[in-house]
Deep mutational scan, measured.
Amino acid sequence: SEIVVAMYDFQATEAHDLRLERGQEYIILEKNDLHWWRARDKYGSEGYIPSNYVTGKK
C-alpha cells in the first residue's frame, strides 16, 4: 500500500472527507478520482483527501 505525507492541513467539510494534519502519514486506499483519493489515517479513520495536499513518502 502507498504511504503519503500531508504537506498542508485540510479541514474535512463533508462527512466522507478525512482531515489532514501537516506532516502526518496516510495510507492510500483508492485513487479512482484524480483530485480526491480515499485514505486512512493512523487512528483508522477513512475518507477522501485532496490529492494535491499530499506527497509520496521519501
Results as ranks from 00 to 15, higher is better:
K57V: 14
E46P: 00
G56C: 14
D9F: 05
L34M: 12
K42M: 12
L34H: 11
N52P: 06
A39Y: 02
E46L: 04
W37C: 05
D33Q: 08
R40V: 09
V5S: 04
E14F: 11
W37E: 01
I49K: 02
G47E: 01
G23N: 05
E46Y: 04
W36Y: 08
E46F: 03
K42N: 05
M7W: 07
A12H: 05
E21D: 09
Q24P: 01
V5T: 09
R38H: 07
G47Q: 00
F10C: 07
D9W: 04
P50N: 07
G23Q: 04
M7T: 07
T55Y: 10
I27E: 11
D41A: 01
Y48H: 05
H16A: 10
I27S: 06
V54F: 03
N52Q: 12
S45Y: 12
K42Y: 06
T13I: 14
W36V: 05
I28N: 00
Q24L: 09
Q24F: 08
I28Q: 00
W37F: 05
A12L: 05
D33E: 08
M7R: 09
G44W: 03
E30W: 08
Y43P: 00
A39V: 12
Y53C: 13
S45H: 15
E2N: 11
E2I: 13
R19Y: 07
N32R: 11
W36K: 09
Y43L: 07
K57F: 11
Y48P: 00
H35S: 09
T13A: 10
V5P: 00
R19M: 10
H35V: 11
N32D: 11
H16P: 06
I28S: 00
W37Y: 07
E2T: 09
L34G: 12
Y8A: 09
I49Y: 02
G47C: 06
Y8F: 13
A6P: 01
D41L: 02
L29I: 12
V54A: 01
E14D: 15
V4Q: 03
R40I: 08
Y48N: 08
K42V: 09
G44L: 03
K58H: 14
V54P: 03
R38D: 02
G44H: 03
L20P: 03
V4S: 03
K42R: 10
G56K: 13
L29N: 01
H16Y: 11
V5Q: 05
D41Y: 02
D41G: 01
Y26Q: 00
A15W: 11
K31F: 05
S1P: 14
E25A: 08
Y43Q: 09
E21L: 08
K42D: 03
G56N: 13
Q11R: 09
G44T: 02
H35W: 12
N32I: 14
R22C: 12
S45V: 13
H16K: 12
A12E: 08
A12W: 04
Y43C: 09
I49S: 02
T13L: 13
A6T: 01
K57I: 14
Y8G: 05
L20Y: 01
A15H: 11
K58S: 14
F10W: 15
F10Y: 14
Y43I: 05
F10D: 00
N52H: 14
E25Y: 10
M7I: 14
R40G: 03
T55P: 03
R19P: 14
A39I: 04
Q11K: 11
E25R: 08
E2A: 09
T13F: 10
A39G: 05
A15G: 10
S1H: 15
W37V: 03
D9V: 03
H35P: 05
R40H: 03
A12N: 08
L18M: 06
D17L: 15
Q11N: 13
R38M: 12
W37T: 01
E2R: 09
E21R: 07
R40Y: 03
G47V: 02
L20C: 02
S45W: 08
G56E: 14
D9P: 05
I49M: 03
R40S: 05
P50Q: 04
K57H: 11
E21Q: 10
L34Q: 12
A15M: 12
K57W: 09
E14A: 13
M7C: 15
E25V: 09
K57A: 12
W37K: 02
N32Q: 11
K58P: 13
I27N: 04
W37L: 04
E30L: 06
D9L: 04
M7N: 06
P50T: 02
Y26A: 00
E21F: 09
V54K: 01
W36D: 03
H16F: 11
I28E: 02
G23Y: 07
Q11E: 15
Y48V: 07
K42A: 09
G44D: 04
A39C: 04
K57D: 10
M7K: 10
S45G: 12
G44K: 03
V5W: 09
Q24G: 09
L20W: 01
Y43V: 05
A6F: 03
Y43W: 11
A39E: 01
D17C: 15
G47F: 04
E30V: 06
R19Q: 13
S45E: 12
I3H: 07
Y48G: 02
D9R: 02
V4D: 00
L18C: 06
S1I: 15
I3K: 08
G23I: 01
S45I: 13
Q24W: 06
E21N: 07
W37R: 02
D17P: 06
I3S: 06
A6Y: 03
R40N: 02
M7A: 06
Q11I: 14
G44F: 03
I3R: 09
D17Q: 15
K31L: 04
W36C: 12
S51E: 05
V5C: 12
N32W: 09
E2L: 13
L18A: 00
Y43T: 08
Y53E: 02
V54M: 03
A15V: 12
E46V: 10
T55R: 11
N32P: 14
Q24C: 13
R19V: 10
D33C: 14
N52K: 11
T13V: 14
M7G: 03
D17H: 15
E46K: 02
Y53A: 11
S51A: 13
Y26D: 00
V5G: 00
E2D: 11
G23P: 00
F10I: 05
I3W: 11
Y48R: 11
P50K: 04
L29P: 00
V4W: 10
P50I: 03
Y53G: 07
R22E: 10
E14Q: 13
P50G: 03
W36N: 06
R22H: 08
D17R: 15
Y43F: 11
T13Y: 10
E2G: 08
P50V: 03
K57S: 11
A15R: 10
R40C: 06
I3P: 04
E21Y: 09
M7V: 11
K58T: 14
V54E: 02
E46H: 04
G23R: 03
Y8N: 07
S45L: 12
A39S: 02
S51Q: 06
I49W: 02
K42P: 07
W36A: 04
W37M: 04
H35E: 09
H16Q: 12
N32Y: 11
K42G: 07
R38P: 02
R22V: 12
S1Q: 14
L34F: 09
E21I: 13
I28P: 00
V4F: 08
Y26L: 04
V4E: 00
V5N: 03
L29M: 06
V54Y: 02
T13D: 09
I49E: 00
Q24S: 09
Y53P: 02
A6L: 03
L29K: 02
L29D: 01
D41C: 04
G23A: 04
H16R: 12
I49D: 00
W37D: 02
Q24R: 06
I3Q: 05
G44C: 06
I3L: 09
D41S: 04
R40A: 07
Y43M: 09
G56F: 13
G44N: 05
N32H: 12
I27Y: 09
G56T: 15
G47R: 01
E14M: 12
Y48T: 07
A12I: 07
K42S: 08
S51W: 05
D17T: 15
L18G: 01
I28F: 02
S1C: 15
L18W: 02
R38A: 04
R19D: 14
K42L: 07
R19L: 07
L20F: 02
I27D: 04
K58F: 14
E25T: 10
T55Q: 11
R38Y: 15
G56W: 12
